[in-house]
């Protein structure tokens, strides 16, 4: 493989950059799915910068390996293109085609330049292909990473959304848990609840698990840890809505659930009100005249 800077490609990039750029842009415009690409207004700027960075990279003489310092500008550019295209909803192939579409115009130029020297042509094409493949795959890699980041962020947001802590009364907060509890989610609930206890100045926290189908050892332990942590902060927890199966699981697991529990949320609220010295009483019947 040619590792010297004096290859046909580097000569071409320096000498015929303008025609190469025009040819490349034209090719991208006629490609399948070009609707989206054409809508990418930055494509001309990206292509111009790509050729400049290619020149820099080749001048640094590291054709086989794009991780070197000479390619740092190129890597930045490709990351920018990938992230921007990932954000705009491009497919991975549309993103990678940015690099791959350069092959045809570049190879045509190389072929013309090499003339009859078949050995040199093969050699040049080989190294050019390897380089462009590496760069193209790099865009896919970054694209993938950008998508993963989006997914991770969405998962985090979902976690936040799925665990609302509500203030039931002055001094009483509650968190109604719905759906399967995994360790991760229980941890988020725990942190949100404890934080809300502080900001609401709540003495009592009700954890309602009516909507939780099953509880495994880990989740039971997390719930107990929440109760212990709340106690350390100076608040009491009441767990409400424990289903029969969950009660069985808890006893079966040998988890010592030495916490106050109530069958229903209303029972828990009643107890909580009592603890803070409040009671709900029936209103006296009003005079008939007032009712009508």
């Amino acid at each position: 493989m040619a590792n010297k800077a004096d290859t046909i490609i580097s000569t071409l990039i320096t000498r015929s950059r303008k025609p190469l750029l025009d040819e490349w842009l034209a090719r991208q415009a006629t490609m399948a799915g070009s609707g989206a690409i054409a809508a990418d207004g930055d494509v001309k700027e990206y292509c111009t910068r790509f050729l400049a960075e290619l020149d820099t990279g080749l001048a640094a003489g590291e054709v086989g390996d794009i991780r070197g310092a000479g390619w740092s500008g190129m890597r930045e550019l490709l990351e920018e293109v990938s992230r921007s295209r990932a954000g705009k909803g491009f497919t991975p192939s549309e993103t990678a085609s940015f690099v791959f579409s350069l092959k045809a115009p570049l190879f045509a130029l190389v072929q013309r330049e090499a003339g009859d020297n078949a050995a040199r042509l093969a050699d040049e094409l080989q190294s050019a292909t390897t380089l462009l493949d590496t760069l193209g795959l790099y865009t896919v890699e970054v694209f993938q990473k950008a998508r993963e980041e989006v997914i991770a962020r969405q998962q985090e947001e979902m976690l936040e959304l799925s665990t609302p802590v509500v203030r039931l009364w002055e001094g009483i907060v509650a968190v109604p848990l719905i759906g399967t509890l995994d360790s991760n989610r229980t941890q988020v609930v725990m942190e949100n609840l404890l934080q809300e206890i502080v900001s609401a100045g709540a003495q009592i926290a009700i954890i309602d698990i009516t909507g939780v189908p099953t509880v495994d050892t880990l989740v039971a332990q997390h719930l107990l840890k929440t109760v212990s942590a709340a106690r350390l902060m100076g608040a009491d927890c009441i767990i409400s809505g424990i289903r029969p199966q969950i009660a069985q699981t808890i006893v079966h697991l040998g988890v010592d659930l030495s916490v106050t529990s109530k069958a229903s949320m209303s029972g828990a609220l009643e107890l909580a009100l009592k603890r803070i010295g409040k009671a709900v009483v029936e209103r006296k019947a009003r005079p008939a005249a007032e009712v009508s």
């Binding site: 942190e191 840890k225 350390l232």
Partner: peptide, 11 residues
């Protein structure tokens, strides 16, 4: 006044 993060860690 124990902070939530401190309480969680302690447990």
């Amino acid at each position: 006044g124990m902070q939530p993060a401190v309480a969680i860690t302690l447990v």
